[in-house]
Computed example of a mutant assay.
Amino acid sequence: MSEYQYYEFLAIDRPLTRAEQEELRSLSTRARITATSFINDYQWGNFRGDPRRMVEQYYDAHLYVTNWGTHQVILRLPKGQLTQRAVEPYCFDECFEAWTTETHLILDLRSEDESGDWNEGAEDSLGAIAGVRAELLSGDHRALYLAWLSGIGAWALQDDDEEAYQDEVEPPVPVGLDRLTAPQRALADFLRVDADLLAVAAQASPPAPASRKRPGKKELAPLIAALPEKEKNDLLLRLALGDEPQLGTELVRRLRGELPVATVPGQRTAAELLDAAHALATERRQRAERIRVEARAKKLTALAADEEAIWHEVENHVARKQTARYDTAVALLVELRDACDHTGRSLEFRQRLAALRDRYRHLPGLLRRLDDRALQG
Rank of each mutant, 00 (worst) to 15 (best):
V87N: 00
V87K: 02
E88K: 09
E88C: 05
Y90D: 01
D93Q: 14
C95Q: 11
C95L: 15
F96P: 01
F96L: 14
E97H: 10
A98D: 00
A98K: 00
A98Y: 00
A98V: 07
W99P: 02
W99D: 01
T101Q: 03
T101E: 02
T101L: 10
T101I: 02
E102I: 14
T103H: 14
T103G: 11
T103W: 15
T103V: 10
L105D: 04
I106L: 06
I106Q: 01
D108F: 06
R110E: 07
R110I: 05
R110F: 04
R110H: 09
R110A: 02
S111D: 04
S111L: 08
S111I: 05
E112Q: 12
E112D: 12
D113I: 08
D113Q: 13
S115Q: 12
S115P: 09
W118F: 09
W118P: 07
N119Y: 08
A122V: 08
E123A: 14
D124P: 08
A128Q: 11
A128T: 11
A130M: 12
R133P: 04
L137H: 12
L137S: 04
S138D: 13
G139W: 07
D140F: 10
R142H: 05
R142V: 03
A143K: 01
A143D: 01
L144T: 01
Y145M: 06
Y145W: 13
L146K: 03
W148H: 02
W148E: 02
L149T: 00
S150N: 09
S150G: 12
G151M: 04
G151T: 11
G153C: 10
G153S: 12
G153R: 08
A154E: 07
A156M: 06
A156V: 06
A156S: 08
L157E: 12
D159P: 03
D160E: 07
E162F: 09
A164H: 13
Y165W: 13
Y165P: 01
Q166M: 15
D167K: 14
E168Q: 14
E168W: 15
V169C: 15
E170M: 13
P171T: 12
P172H: 06
P172F: 10
P174H: 03
P174A: 09
P174S: 11
V175Y: 06
G176Y: 05
G176H: 05
G176Q: 13
D178V: 03
T181N: 06
T181A: 09
A182R: 07
A182M: 10
Q184I: 03
R185S: 06
A186N: 03
L187H: 06
A188D: 01
D189V: 13
F190G: 00
F190W: 01
L191M: 10
R192Q: 14
D194I: 06
D194N: 11
D194P: 01
A195E: 14
A195M: 11
D196L: 10
D196K: 13
L197A: 12
L197K: 06
L198V: 15
L198A: 10
Q203D: 15
A204W: 12
A204Q: 08
A204G: 14
S205K: 15
P209V: 13
S211E: 07
S211K: 11
S211A: 11
